[in-house]
């Protein structure tokens, strides 16, 4: 970066601080991570077999991240995904012996119910979402542990037979398409962004802020319930650790994908896809490079911290609702 004349560095700096560049940053990050991981693993990560494995790990986090994307756009946060996934997986497994559609509905309803509890306390009691969802996270983690103390909860053979790639891809793509449509082409997207950018002003502009917040939490729960179905057909039996630390995985994914932690108007729908892929590549790379799980956590923590520090919009900084 030699200073040839006065014009160039200032143009470069203007570009580096522009929103276009900030929007591209996660995509660049994804490419860099793929290249770096490919080099560090001597090309093993880009083999067909590995890619298939990678893809199989993307489905359910991407579905969950879609719901949480809306929650975080509100400027709120949700820590219940892990325990919701665990509990919904148990419900689905138990119901799978009666009827598959019933099992799917049961999973979605379980998630929606947990989302409704979060949303209710958040809206009616004006409690901050991260406090409520930490409480409910422990609560439902406890219920999961209780239901799996004797032994793991098995799912029926019928539901396990649905572990088909085309089905999982269809569900994931359908969720993304519907969510994208709602976000871009209906007032839902505008309402959610407005609440995240300035709640009182949004309310005074005609946004039914309480209803929007409640419904977003319910939807996020329901999507986690649907993700639990994808999880059950893959793993087949549910243990106490099902969905463990999923909430941090999703949070890191979305932030890696470029979602501002304060939510609001600068979120992009692509944050979900880029972020989930980035996390999965990173995670697999670290495993393949033979790091122990403690070291992996350490590295992930550092990368997360760096990303938050680099991408946070200090002008919009406020307490997470």
């Amino acid at each position: 970066m030699q200073k040839n004349n006065n014009q160039q560095p200032s143009k470069l700096r203007a570009f580096l601080s522009s929103d276009t560049f900030k929007g591209l940053l996660p995509v660049i990050g994804l490419v860099v991570i793929v290249i770096v991981m490919n080099i560090l693993t001597q090309g093993k990560i880009l083999t067909a077999k590995r890619l298939r494995l990678l893809l199989s790990q993307v489905y359910y986090p991407m579905i969950v991240a879609t719901g949480v994307f809306f929650v975080m756009t509100l400027g709120s946060i949700d820590f219940t995904e892990g325990s919701t996934l665990g509990l919904a997986s148990i419900v689905i497994s138990k119901l799978s012996f009666y009827s598959i559609p019933l099992a799917i509905a049961g999973g979605i309803l379980t998630g929606a119910a947990i989302g409704a509890i979060n949303g209710f306390f958040h809206v009616k009691f004006k409690l901050q979402s991260f406090i409520i969802t930490i409480c409910t996270m422990y609560l439902f983690r406890g219920v999961c542990a209780y239901m799996t103390t004797e032994s793991a909860v098995p799912a029926s053979a019928a539901i396990k037979a649905l572990d088909l790639n085309w089905l999982k891809i269809t569900i994931t793509v359908a969720v993304l398409l519907i969510a994208w449509f709602l976000f871009r082409f209906t007032r839902i997207g505008y309402d959610v962004k407005a609440v995240g950018a300035g709640e009182t002003a949004a309310r005074f502009s005609g946004v039914k802020t309480d209803r929007v917040k409640f419904l977003v939490f319910v939807a996020a729960g329901a999507l986690t319930g649907l993700a639990a179905f994808v999880n059950v057909i893959k793993v087949g039996s549910i243990t106490a650790t099902a969905g463990n630390q999923l909430e941090t995985q999703i949070l890191i994914s979305l932030v890696l994908g470029g979602l501002p932690i304060t939510g609001g108007a600068k979120v992009r729908f692509s944050n979900i896809i880029v972020g989930t892929l980035m996390y999965t590549v990173l995670n697999n790379g670290l495993v393949m490079m033979g790091f122990e799980s403690q070291t992996q956590q350490l590295i992930k923590g550092i990368i997360f911290l760096l990303f938050v520090a680099l991408t946070i919009d200090r002008k919009a900084l406020k307490v997470i609702k």
Binding site: Y190, K193, G198, A201, A202, S205, G206, A265, K315, A316
Partner: peptide, 26 residues
């Protein structure tokens, strides 16, 4: 009055958004 961290466009359309939608689609 105004959502400071939002575009001029979205601030202006917010109260009128239902009028501007065709069958809910914008």
């Amino acid at each position: 009055s105004i959502i400071v961290n939002e575009s001029i466009r979205n601030n202006i359309v917010l109260p009128s958004i239902d009028d501007l939608a065709a069958k809910g689609v914008l």
